[in-house]
Design a protein around this nucleic acid. Structure first.
Lengths: 138, 138
DNA sequence: TAAAATAATGCACTTCCATTGCATTGATTA
DNA sequence: TAATCAATGCAATGGAAGTGCATTATTTTA
């Protein structure tokens, strides 16, 4: 049993071929991916399976969703100690309007946000749009 | 010619009955609205007209889009000196997970966000989720 | 280890929202 | 007033998300 398999088992889900493949696919990517990206990478597999695999990964805090404002949900592997549900360890996401890539800037934590009296903040989503490092040098 | 009509003309678009109605509808709302909300308020009008009216308002910086992560695009009137395209005057949005309302917290400006070298930030979208003031007192 | 239980996968559908083409109606301008 | 251009309405499309159910695979336990 290799690292990926051990990891999935540790997370309390069944280790299947599909899950190993999708997990490895995600870990190779430096940018966030859409369901369609995964679909294109595994055109033999059914869309629903991929969809539900990602949902399972989300539930088990293996991946997190990113809403970058393009209208399509992006996904990325969580960091080792990520607790996406909680108000901790929130990093920001950058969406490049040129190449369309969305990346996790895990080193850039989100500053404390003040909300008015009576409001209770539970989750923060911060997306910066602009030109990424690869596109800005061209 | 009243205030609304003057305003629309100032923005460089034709003043039509539909546009006046939609503008007034938006200005009465304290929360952001979806296209469906507008549709329900004007069930005599065609969906496409409402859709394109909002798009026109967006182009002319009369309304701005809010992506609160619910998957449905929300809209709200811009503030007097709002330039949504530019990196100025960005306020944050609050989405209440209980009542589903999304409000513009126009008094709460977004802190300067640092991005890594090579990245060029052009726009910032910040959505805080939690419980709003009305729901938290219940 | 075979049978029973539970979970994962695949197929077919459905729903919802966003968007477009085209004809028609309405508003502006020459 | 005719010609021009923009706004509206209708019909249709496309994309993404999500669900029900049958089938296959994996795990448990008797």
């Amino acid at each position: 049993m290799n690292k990926t398999e051990q990891f999935l088992q540790l997370k309390g889900i069944r280790v299947t071929a599909m899950r190993i493949l999708i997990y490895n696919f995600l870990s190779e990517k430096k940018v966030t991916v859409t369901l369609s990206d995964i679909e294109n990478a595994f055109d033999k597999a059914d869309r629903t399976t991929l969809y539900r695999t990602i949902k399972t990964f989300e539930d088990k805090e293996i991946v997190h969703q990113i809403d970058d404002g393009t209208g399509v949900t992006k996904y990325a592997l969580c960091e080792p100690n990520c607790h996406c549900d909680l108000n901790t360890d929130l990093h920001l996401h950058f969406h490049c309007t040129q190449c369309g890539a969305t990346v996790c800037l895990t080193d850039h934590k989100i500053p404390k946000i003040k909300v008015p009296n009576g409001y209770i903040a539970e989750h923060v989503n911060l997306v910066v749009k602009g030109i990424c490092d690869k596109c800005s040098v061209k």
